[in-house]
Design a protein around this nucleic acid. Structure first.
Lengths: 134, 134
DNA sequence: GGCTTCTTGCTGCAGCGCAACATAAAAAGT
DNA sequence: ACTTTTTATGTTGCGCTGCAGCAAGAAGCC
């Protein structure tokens, strides 16, 4: 198994949840995931939430706080990076923008306030390029 | 009335909700607000949500997405500013850090992706100075 | 096999958020 | 002042979100 050490046990349930998110290039709510897994026996909400917890702990999935939804994470964020999500308010698509030097600026700014930050996640709402053209 | 033009009608209900948030220097959930207003007749959830919608539209209140909670906003953010919330994971206190030049960097970065951003809100979780000392 | 650990399933529940409709209050028109 | 229109609040009801607590099964270890 490829990611053996990182994701200790990618069980069928967890794989199904991850694949559902990978197939959809927009964030899915937990109950939307349930719908998509329903053909082979509908899992209970708690089951999906536990799979999501596992996937999030292993950096395979991110939670979009402002949408109560989840997206699969392709890029291998190295733990300490800044993640910027661009969330289209019209089509719900989510892209990731390069955070770049913003990360350090932000961390320095918060440390100046005596604050010890965890790796920040930024969600920016707006209109994506595709929807803009229409 | 001072903020007459901006907040068109600061009705008693809206004022109560705002005061509840001002009295508490941490974010409150909608149902927590209901508890605090309960002495003079407990408002229905929808009533509080509508007051919060109004206050948010007028920039008096922010929603903390990652907490499903709301905070009163003292600073007069000029519409186009970046807002950085520092959220303590231990005591739930919320501070605002100066966004400074981060705003333009972020906007430029997202525009480069063909994205038209609204004014971004950044929520950074961590441990605040006060909790750190203990 | 026997034990421990991990994972999944089941029941139930509390908080969040709002739709739809009805009522009351305020603002605007005449 | 009276009617019309707009705006705000109340009532009912419901769906989504997220998880606690317990029981049962599956995987790994001795």
């Amino acid at each position: 198994m490829l990611c053996a050490a990182r994701a200790q046990r990618l069980t069928p349930m967890r794989r199904h949840v991850l694949e559902a998110l990978l197939d959809s290039h927009r964030p899915l709510g937990a109950y939307e995931i349930i719908e998509r897994l329903a053909r082979h026996g509908r899992p209970a909400p708690i089951t999906v939430y536990r799979a999501l917890d596992f996937l999030r702990d292993n950096g395979l999935v991110h939670r979009i706080e402002s949408r109560n939804a989840f997206v699969a994470c392709v890029h291998n964020h190295g733990g300490d990076d800044l993640i910027v999500f661009l969330i289209c308010e019209r089509c719900d698509a989510v892209g990731e923008a390069p955070g770049g030097n913003v990360a350090e600026t932000l961390k320095a700014s918060s440390r100046a306030a005596g604050f010890v930050p965890k790796s920040p996640v930024i969600e920016i709402a707006g209109i994506c390029a595709h929807c803009r053209e229409r």
